[in-house]
Computed example of a mutant assay.
Amino acid sequence: MNIEVMIIEDDTRIAEINSRFTKKVAGFEVIAIATTGEQAIELLEIIQPQLVLLDVYLPDMKGTELIKSIRQSNPEIDIIMITAASEVDIVGHSLRSGVSDYIVKPVTFDRFKNSLENYQKKLEKLNFNENLSQDEITSLWRNSQQENSFVVEEEAPKGIDPLTLNKILHYLPQVKEEGITSEMLSKESGVSRSTARRYLEYLISQKKIYADLVYGNVGRPERRYFRTKHL
């Protein structure tokens, strides 16, 4: 039996991408798409999805407000946040509200698939076992991002924000063979050029990436950053 999914996303293009991503993961079925909080509430009164994929920035309310409504009227529904929001208060609210996972846009299919499959595994453990071992119980609370090879294992030092770091880490798999400059990363991630350079240099210290001087057409060298083989 498929896990029924409802997508709540105001950008119809992204909603369609999330829908196509969901359909590519075995065992999941999209049964509804809502583009506003009010529409989502109305649909939730009619349908009972197992899982909601929720954006934070909706035109009529924040997704965090909608979480409260879902928890009050449909406490059995699970929620995965898929959003550009990385503010600490929003992430903290989502965590305290029992959100299953938190994915920061732009979303890669691998990250999306990883989240849904981890959620599926958790459901299987809860639905097909009467008792669980300590290891199995621990795994139910393990954040799927901790299982993702792009997350830095050590505690980030002063000046390195974990949310910004993870945003950059999730972008790294998209870096092509020719590498990336701090200016290119700045444009892609929305951070300043100096911030992009600081985080890239930090990732070198973590052996997540490496840098080299590359000479362009005009002969001026530029520092480019490349993924290590395990990324």
Rank of each mutant, 00 (worst) to 15 (best):
L54S: 11
A40P: 07
V107A: 13
S19M: 13
L54E: 11
I90A: 06
Q120W: 06
L66M: 12
E29C: 08
V107F: 05
H93Q: 14
L53R: 01
R13I: 14
A84V: 14
T22Q: 07
L58G: 02
D60H: 08
F21M: 03
E65H: 12
D60M: 07
D78H: 12
L116G: 01
I14N: 05
K24V: 02
P75N: 07
P106N: 08
A15L: 12
E16T: 13
I67L: 15
L51D: 09
K24R: 15
P106V: 07
I103V: 13
E29I: 06
G92E: 14
V88K: 15
V56Y: 05
I79N: 01
E65W: 05
R111Y: 03
Q50S: 12
L58W: 07
Y102T: 08
D78M: 02
L43W: 06
K68V: 11
I80G: 00
I103D: 00
V52N: 03
Q48C: 10
S97H: 08
S115E: 01
P106T: 08
A32L: 09
I70S: 04
I14V: 15
I46P: 03
V52C: 11
S19V: 04
H93Y: 10
E76W: 03
S115I: 01
E87Y: 08
E42K: 15
A85P: 10
L66Y: 09
I14H: 08
A34V: 12
S69F: 12
V104R: 03
S69Q: 14
I46M: 07
N74F: 09
S100E: 15
I46W: 02
V99Q: 02
L54M: 14
S86I: 15
T35E: 12
